[in-house]
Design a protein around this nucleic acid. Structure first.
Length: 814
RNA sequence: GCGAUUAUGGCGGAAUUGGUAGACGCGCUAGUUUCAGGUACUAGUUGGGGCAACUCAGUGGAAGUUCGAGUCUUCUUAAUCGCACCA
């Protein structure tokens, strides 16, 4: 920290010594300041009750072998800017970083090469840290976490035990994708057009007992508590739609001597039900015999190859009638045919529907295809053309005739309840969370199965339950996780009865660690608790959480749920973890195509930092476009930002210890106000524009007042911290610019004395007038009418009205 | 299919949220510096017409509300993202 100031007492004196031929050497500058920040631990943060805290959080990355993508630094830079500004404004800022280290690619790499995932993950993490440091982010590296570290996953396992203890974790039979060739369970992502990604074999389903988490119990809270959170509307509505709360009724039909229950949001339309549809997997289909059994079984097999997504997307409806058995409509006693079709899913409702083709478009399409009757029971549409899903008076509906939709629903449910064949019911699209993976590289689930006691939780004292070593990472013939091969590890004693027991061999999904990682940052070395109550009380909530839109319905929802559960148990202080959520747009390749290895258009941050420097890279990431929208990478535009940084560097040679003029101050305060506002409202691209305008102004001056330049350095320091720090030091400061105060803009000094007002005739621009600010309306009107161009267009017409918007516009209506 | 988002010059985008459309940057054109390339600097740059003053058109498309619409309303088209075992 020496050699910053060469001992001269004034700028002028010192400047004479400064070599004006000096070129902007970002490599030396950036290395120098990164070393200083590292040595001084400039970003280390501790609980400090004398300061207001601010917790900024970005989604931690999965440490892939490819290293950082230029998409990552977009959000990291944005919140780095926010964090740095907040620090300068006096906040105690926590801005941490860690690694979501468990995951499929490391495991697949291990299957191929035999390299232990822990080994490849560790080297990937080192590479990420190197890259992140080279960009100059202000993370507190002392709080770096890694979800695959036993010190961390001990607490993930502990949390699972809490979920189990409270009945929130349970076992259920769920189908998985299974490749009969590779004998491995596949993620949806690994299924390409119904085939296995590795070998192309047709993927089948295999049913397994798996751990589920009862997130649906929190469905209502997850919807209701969104209110009041500072989340973008699109995030809120996506979560609400994902949870898909719908009010309706469950109704019992009679079918082959059994009670067939359906869920419907429109019980009022039951008189229009002309057939029923079961999901092919519906248990009754397997239990009953049909006249066309062969046809039915063949259809079920065919449907098993399709994913739910494919099934809902197929426009052409398919299905088979279950011949020989009909269903009885409880409202009118009519016997109607029953079909199976893959547009009905087992996962939602009861896996069976009553079809009202006149008033549901999917049922309509099905009825048209199979030539089934369509009975109109609500007036208002034209059912010869399409299904009518709106509201209107009921017809052909017995006791519901004449009622509208809402009253009809109420009456229909009343009737069903009175006659004991149905009840009001709220249904959710949200399904319980499938928490088991037949994989190696995840947190072991700390449960053992005992023949006498059933599923028994490990005692807390045995945590962390470490991942055992295995020889290969493939599942066994039965599709069990590779852990099943570690027989020494699997065979154990029951913690309850001390008899023989076997460990659970499934592991947790990647979502487990990421559901609570933001709490671990608060107290990363704690081995008694996942985080101390003191740390939780001081740091929570996260004030600003940024992450991708693609996480809205999974990670963001899971972690809100997880946090709420632990709030109900009293472990965390608030009911919601995140105060504010924002989402960055994706960065596409040059020309607007997605960056991918196969297209060869992936931009490596290392190359950009190496060629232009971290400051240019950071500024460009912010300048590339509106933060929440997608943006295409452009090396040409990057060049413009590089010029901008060079200009800032070059301006130093014009700095003198002089008083700023009134115009100078106006430009300066305008810039302060704009940059401050635009950082807060995430308009980083226009914040950079403001500074460019300011720099252009300064470049036009012969001499630049030191105050003007210092202010520029402060404003730019969150964006381009290295060059800001360097020039700040060259000005003679012996403290860091990052420890200086954020400037405060004075709106009065930023104001113009003279405003240019537009003059319109009938809404068309005909000229402008320069008026003193806040000139009286009469003066403005007079000046406007005096314009030749205005007179020309007004002519002899009578003036009806003159609209004056102060300091902005005059519109003459004739 | 369901849900969400976006659309403005040659390109990325801006517009004080209903008030001068095109800030800022890229690119391009001309000029200066340079042996030359690059850099740097100066001027210009939405399209049509005009020497010019000026004028007409213009924010994916169609209609509407308003003194005034990129912004509000209705309809429509196209593109992008997510859809539960990638994280």
């Amino acid at each position: 920290m020496t050699a910053r100031y060469n001992g001269k007492s004034t700028f002028e004196e010192w400047q004479k010594e400064f070599n004006t031929e000096d070129r902007y050497n970002f490599k030396a500058i950036e290395k120098k300041w990164q070393d200083i920040w590292d040595e001084e631990k400039s970003y280390k943060v501790e609980i400090d009750h004398n300061k207001e805290k601010y917790y900024t959080l970005v989604e931690f990355p999965y440490p892939s072998a490819q290293g950082l993508h230029v998409g990552h630094p977009r959000s990291y830079t944005a919140l780095d800017v926010v964090s740095r500004k907040k620090r300068m404004q006096g906040f105690n800022v926590l801005y941490p970083m860690g690694f979501d280290a468990f995951g499929l690619p490391a495991e697949n790499y291990a299957i191929k090469t035999g390299v232990h995932p822990a080994v490849s993950t560790a080297s990937n993490i080192q590479n990420y840290i190197r890259q992140l440091k080279s960009i100059g982010f202000s993370f507190d590296w002392d709080r770096c976490i890694d979800t695959s570290d036993p010190k961390m996953y001990k607490w993930t396992q502990w949390m699972f035990l809490k979920l189990f203890e409270k009945g929130m974790a349970y076992k259920d039979k769920i189908a998985i994708n299974w490749c009969p060739q590779c004998k491995i369970s596949l993620a949806n992502e690994e299924v390409v057009n119904g085939g296995c990604e590795r070998c192309g074999t047709q993927v089948t389903k295999k049913t397994k007992e798996q751990w589920m988490i009862a997130i649906t119990k929190y469905a209502d809270k997850l919807i209701d508590d969104l209110e009041g959170l500072d989340f973008p509307d699109r995030v809120k509505s996506q979560q609400i739609n994902w949870i898909g709360r719908s009010e309706g009724a469950e109704l019992d039909f009679e079918f082959g001597g059994k009670k067939l229950t359906v869920f419907t949001t429109r019980p009022d339309t039951t008189f229009g039900a002309t057939f029923m549809v079961l999901a092919p997997e519906h248990p009754y289909v397997a239990e009953l015999k049909f006249e066309n059994d062969d046809e039915v079984r063949a259809y079920i097999k065919q449907a098993s190859f399709k994913s739910d997504l494919q099934r809902t997307m197929d426009e052409e409806k398919t299905g088979v009638e279950l011949k020989g058995v009909k269903a009885k409509n409880p409202y009118n006693g009519e016997m109607i045919p029953v079909f199976i079709s893959d547009y009905v899913l087992t996962g939602y409702g009861t896996g069976a529907i009553m079809a009202v083709p006149a008033h549901d478009s999917r049922d309509y399409a099905f009825a048209k295809k199979f030539n089934l009757p369509i009975i109109e029971v609500l007036k208002g549409g034209d059912i010869s053309k399409e299904a009518f899903e709106g509201d209107g008076p009921h017809i052909n509906s017995g006791f519901l005739d004449g009622l509208g939709k809402e009253d009809g629903i109420k009456k229909a449910i009343e009737f069903a309840e009175k006659n004991n064949f149905g009840t009001a019911k709220i249904n959710y699209k949200l399904r319980d969370w499938l928490f088991s993976r037949q994989r190696y590289w995840g947190e072991p689930i700390p449960m053992v199965h005992c023949d006498t006691c059933g599923w028994v939780a490990l005692p807390e004292s045995e945590l962390p339950l470490l991942l055992p070593e295995v020889n290969d990472y493939l599942p066994n013939e039965e599709g069990e996780s590779p852990l099943a091969k570690a027989t020494d590890w699997v065979n154990t004693t029951c913690p309850k009865c001390h008899g023989h027991a076997k460990r659970e061999t499934d592991t947790m999904p990647g979502w487990a660690g990421s559901s609570w990682y933001f709490l671990r940052y608060l107290d990363p070395d704690n081995d008694k608790e996942f985080a101390s109550q003191e740390a939780l009380k001081y740091w929570m909530n996260v004030d600003w959480y940024n992450g991708g839109m693609e996480h809205t319905t999974l990670h963001l929802l899971y972690s809100r749920f997880w946090y709420k559960f632990f709030h109900d148990l009293g472990y965390v202080p608030t009911k919601e973890p995140y105060n504010r959520r924002t989402s960055h747009g994706m960065i596409l390749g040059e020309g607007g195509e997605k960056m991918s290895k196969s297209r060869g258009n992936v931009v490596n941050p290392d190359d950009i930092v190496g060629t232009y420097g971290a400051d240019t890279f950071r500024l460009y990431e912010m300048f590339i476009g509106p933060y929440e929208q997608v943006a295409a990478w452009s090396e040409e535009s990057l060049n413009g930002v590089y010029r901008f940084v060079n200009k800032i560097y070059g301006l130093f040679n014009k700095v003198y210890n002089i008083e700023p003029s009134k115009d100078d101050l106006r430009a300066m305060h305008k810039c302060i106000i704009e940059v401050t506002e635009r950082i807060d409202s995430m308009r980083f691209n226009t914040a950079v524009s403001s500074m460019m305008t300011y720099v252009n102004y300064l470049s036009g001056l012969d001499k630049v007042s030191a105050v003007m330049y210092e202010t520029l350095l402060k404003l730019i320091s969150p964006f381009a911290p290295h060059v800001a720090e360097e020039m700040w030091a060259r000005l003679g400061h012996s403290t860091l610019v990052l420890k200086s105060d954020w400037p405060v803009g004075d709106p009065k000094l930023a104001q113009d004395d003279v405003v240019t007002m537009a003059v319109q005739v009938l809404g068309k621009l005909r000229g402008t007038i320069d008026m003193p600010k806040d000139a009286p309306q009469v003066d403005v009107e007079k000046a406007a009418l005096a314009l030749d161009s205005v007179q020309k267009h007004v002519g002899s017409a009578a003036i009806k009205k003159v609209i004056v918007v102060p300091n902005k516009i005059v519109n003459i209506v004739i």
